[in-house]
Amino acid sequence: MSDTASNGQTPLVEMIDMHKRFGGVHAVEGVTIDLYPGEVLGILGHNGAGKTVLTKILSGAHRADEGEIKINGKKVDLHNPRDAQNLGIETIYQTLALADNLDAPANLFLGREIMTGFGTMDDDAMENESRKVIQRLNPNFKNIKDPMRTMSGGQRQSVAIARAVYFNAKILIMDEPTAALGPQETAMVSELIEQLKKEGIGIILISHDLHDVFDLSDRVSVMKNGKLVGTRYTRDVTKDDVLGMIILGKLPGETTPEDGKALH
């Protein structure tokens, strides 16, 4: 790739030549991306382009068939989500990954419960912490002790975001984080992203909505049919250029006049 954000800096994340097959489906095919501290990398592409599968490899949810992952320049082996969490990688999954029968604090702390001195769960402490972090994201969200099943799409998404933010991620993967949110909450998430950036956190932001990503990302990577089309600095390209990458799978400059017509 011609574009890197390097100024001699080590990337926070490098995923090199990743491959993942599901039976006959080559979901991810030779994709290489990197991510720097304090950077937002947008990943764009059609439905089924392989965005989720690629990032789930980094979350430890999928094992890659081939490829190498480096965190801070060191090769790592991610066997399961716990490994990724331990390296400071937090994920907001597209499906939100919430247990509908549990309440918000139980979901927020699932797998990382606050314990009392007796080795039992401290539900009150978890409720208290949850209120604080959820309050910040979504001030209107009060009924956090109800089971998730009774909550709105936006509330569910708030819990998923709160969970990823709470544990001091160094690397944050956001797979369609605002799909169910209203304009006000979406603005809140944008603000959150800006703030996390300032703290030096690297963020991978997935969306198939171009406009969402364009305003927040420093760079965009475009995927099509499991392959990487290319990565560009957002400031160097126009929305139309990126649209061309998404739809045609070609880099700006490679397009022919006919291609241009097809776009409009």
Partner: peptide
């Protein structure tokens, strides 16, 4: 209980 509610989510939580 989490497994009963959503086995996939439970696994993604690192359990």
């Amino acid at each position: 209980y989490a497994m009963g509610g959503n086995p996939e989510a439970t696994e993604l939580a690192g359990i």
